[in-house]
Design a protein around this nucleic acid. Structure first.
Lengths: 134, 134
DNA sequence: CTGCATCCCTTATGATACTG
DNA sequence: CAGTATCATAAGGGATGCAG
């Protein structure tokens, strides 16, 4: 949530991006997708460094969006389990493609960064169109 | 950018997500992808509501990551053009799949939200596993 | 036109401590 | 165990104004 106005108008995929790729949501979905139904603590441990507060927030959001299902067991020590819904599982192929792209192209991204950082910054000006890309 | 520590460890796609799906980057890439090479002002106009400062920041980041190429023409009124690189263009299929998912599932997400918001919130507890999803 | 420098403020996020 | 409440902090983003 939280788009001031309309990055959306220029780009039809913004709503999905905001929902699926906001901070922590990807690791959470990934974890639930690959390790199946898990309790709160399990998630907390797997996503080392997340605080319970934030984890709760994100899980609530995902539950509201229908990507994650929450099951509350009113036992002595309370037990709550989270799992991916069918809707959420439909994102699987997308994640897979994302991973594929990463494997194939992250190295080049890394090189681009080094190359960029190497330039003193003044050199970045005045690049007469040397016809690159496309 | 900016992951304090390691949402990454739990999820291999986090680096890509941070790079491609941080705020405004999706609309920018989308615009460059669909309308081709554009000048700074054109982008600014298309992404109504973005400020030049932020647009510059994002473009720099994308340039550094090698997804966007910048061409500076040292003319009387300066002219700068941005375009997608081959690397950036490789994200096309991914965006397409994202759009497809959106078309197919956003309505259901919307329904999930309404349904969730309808519940008084106390009712959200004690849901004996009514075997949902998966 | 392009875009950097400043200042300011909202918001998100993290650390900590405490209940059912 | 599974959260919630409170507080503190920092980052992101917007609004100028000015320079190449």
């Amino acid at each position: 949530m939280e788009q001031t106005a309309d990055p959306q108008t220029a780009c039809p995929v913004t709503p999905v991006v905001d929902m699926v790729f906001s901070r922590w949501t990807t690791p959470i979905l990934w974890s639930l997708h690959h390790h199946g139904r898990q309790r709160f603590v399990e998630l907390e441990r797997r996503l080392t460094s997340i605080t319970p507060k934030v984890l709760t927030q994100r899980l609530r959001q995902l539950e509201r969006d229908g990507l994650v299902a929450r099951t509350y067991h009113a036992e002595v020590p309370p037990r709550v389990e989270y799992e991916i819904t069918a809707l959420g599982a439909g994102l699987g192929p997308l994640f897979a493609q994302l991973a594929t792209w990463a494997d194939a192209n992250l190295p080049e991204v890394e090189r681009a960064r080094e190359s960029y950082d190497a330039r003193p910054a003044p050199a970045r000006q005045a690049s007469t169109d040397t016809g690159r890309a496309r």
